[in-house]
């Protein structure tokens, strides 16, 4: 979570709100923030740390681990209409790469800004060319994009 907190400014610049969720109580969240996370990130965790002790939220999102009574690593990108645009669920030992989440927010925001007329090819980042799906593009993607541009 400290990695998320460290990227919070980049996420805020994109207008992204963050909610973290675990089965710990909000009291334990405070202890974790005060005693550990605040030593990794200046000012501590700047977003809501939610408590889901009964696992209701985790079940609704498909990340509840019944055998351990915990929530798996799950990351969901939700757009301004409340629609889930992306999700990533991992077993606990491997951590996330937040830069990829930031990139996905940028890509989804670009698509939304163009009214869905454009698509972003693999590895797209702001400033790189997008694709405009249509009859002319069928069979011709190779003319405008190739994996070396990723």
């Amino acid at each position: 979570m400290s990695a998320v907190a460290a990227q919070y400014e980049a996420l805020q610049k994109l207008g992204v709100e963050v909610i973290s969720v675990s089965v710990d109580s909000h009291f334990v969240h405070k202890m974790w923030n005060d005693n550990e996370l605040s030593k990794m990130v200046d000012g501590g965790v700047p977003f809501h740390m939610a408590s889901d002790q009964a696992g209701h939220v985790g079940r609704a999102y498909g990340v509840w681990d019944e055998s351990q009574g915990i929530e798996l690593r799950g990351r969901f990108i939700i757009d301004p209409d409340g629609v889930i645009q992306a999700m990533e669920v991992m077993t606990p030992p491997v951590g996330r790469k937040l830069a990829e989440t930031v990139r996905q927010f940028q890509a989804f925001q670009h698509i939304r800004a163009t009214g869905g007329k454009e698509a972003t090819p693999a590895g797209w980042e702001p400033g790189k060319p997008t694709l405009t799906p249509g009859p002319d593009l069928v069979g011709n993607v190779w003319k405008v994009w190739n994996p070396s541009m990723e």
Binding site: L14, V21, L72, R73, I78
Partner: peptide
């Protein structure tokens, strides 16, 4: 835009 992050 919202990011919801679950963790163990």
């Amino acid at each position: 835009w919202v990011m919801v992050c679950f963790y163990p």
